[in-house]
């Protein structure tokens, strides 16, 4: 039928959108997006081209240990950023670590979004006692610093897990800890917006048709609350990576057998005073680049989606 909404390809619609227009005119955002793309793609394709799998002990050679970066005296090809005390290539370790950091960041944002959006919709749509219970519980979580919750949770859960699962489950525990303190922000935003939308007449029109509450929440209200959520999620992606790095740096995050950037920084930290600065400085640099790129993108998104700032 001709009148069916013609499916314009998503790409074409994106190219025509205000968002894309704003993006192409913001050099900072484009640079940040480019950098982020390079960092993520290089991390996820790393196994294809790096010198070694840095966490496979069989591939490490103690004879190659403690090389400085290639441009410094004593640097050795192909160890561009040098090696650590066990002959592990720093560049390979960083790329593998970035992969873990990004995965944990993405997973915690995803689950925090799922929990936050669900809670916010239910609280905002039904109001009353349900809203009070859910949101006050969230307030309690918010009154405790994120890091403290994360430390508490990862310490407790780690103790509860059988020793054999501790290493494997470390990533999951981290994600759980970050989600536990992260969902409240989404829930609050969605709840506030839902409470506004619930009173609008298009929702009443749907209620008149006896559309089930679940479908009203997800198909009618949710699309109208997504804008602020998108911004918050982008900025929180950076925060989640940092939280993960902090926990790993403190030694309650990723274990040395599957190190994230934070773990690498902690491990390298011990050698800083013996002159082997490259073991810790390069992971720090990578972490900074990653988080700065995400934050610049998030800031741009916030401005671009806020019509009052145009």
């Amino acid at each position: 039928m001709t009148i069916l909404p013609r499916q314009v390809s998503r790409l074409a619609r994106l190219r025509q959108s205000d968002l894309w227009w704003s993006f192409t005119r913001n050099r900072g955002a484009m640079a940040a997006a480019g950098l982020l793309l390079v960092l993520i793609v290089s991390a996820f394709t790393a196994p294809l081209y790096v010198v070694q799998n840095p966490f496979d002990p069989a591939q490490l050679d103690l004879l190659n240990a403690e090389y400085p970066p290639i441009w410094a005296e004593g640097g050795q090809w192909p160890y561009i950023l040098g090696t650590d005390t066990q002959g592990r290539d720093i560049l390979s370790a960083i790329l593998y670590g970035t992969r873990i950091s990004v995965l944990i960041g993405l997973a915690s944002v995803f689950f925090a979004l799922a929990v936050g959006i669900g809670t916010g919709l239910v609280a905002g749509y039904y109001g009353g006692l349900i809203e009070n219970l859910l949101m006050r519980f969230g307030d309690i979580l918010l009154s405790i610093p994120t890091i403290l919750i994360a430390i508490l949770v990862s310490a407790i859960v780690r103790e509860l897990l059988p020793p054999s699962l501790r290493e494997v489950g470390a990533g999951g525990v981290l994600v759980f800890a970050i989600v536990l303190s992260g969902w409240v922000q989404y829930a609050r935003t969605v709840r506030a917006q839902t409470a506004v939308e619930r009173g609008k007449e298009y929702v009443q029109a749907a209620q008149l048709l006896k559309v089930p509450a679940r479908r009203i929440m997800f198909r009618h209200i949710l699309p109208n609350t997504l804008t602020p959520i998108l911004v918050a999620a982008t900025l929180n992606f950076g925060m989640a990576i940092l939280t993960e790095a902090t926990l790993s740096f403190l030694g309650i995050g990723m274990p040395a057998s599957q190190p994230s950037l934070g773990t690498l920084i902690r491990l390298g930290n011990q050698f800083l005073f013996s002159g082997m600065w490259w073991i810790t400085v390069f992971p720090v640099l990578q972490l900074c680049l990653l988080v700065v790129a995400v934050n610049i993108l998030g800031d741009w998104l916030r401005d671009a989606l806020n019509p009052k700032l145009r």
């Binding site: 009148i3 007449e201 298009y202 009443q204 029109a205 008149l208």
Partner: peptide, 25 residues
């Protein structure tokens, strides 16, 4: 019973195409 609402700017979901709005019932 159906209802026609007062505010034509709030009574249609801004994220839905007109086709889907009318097809919903």
């Amino acid at each position: 019973v159906q209802m026609i609402f007062q505010d034509p700017y709030a009574s249609l979901n801004p994220r839905w195409r007109v086709f889907d709005i009318i097809a919903e019932p």
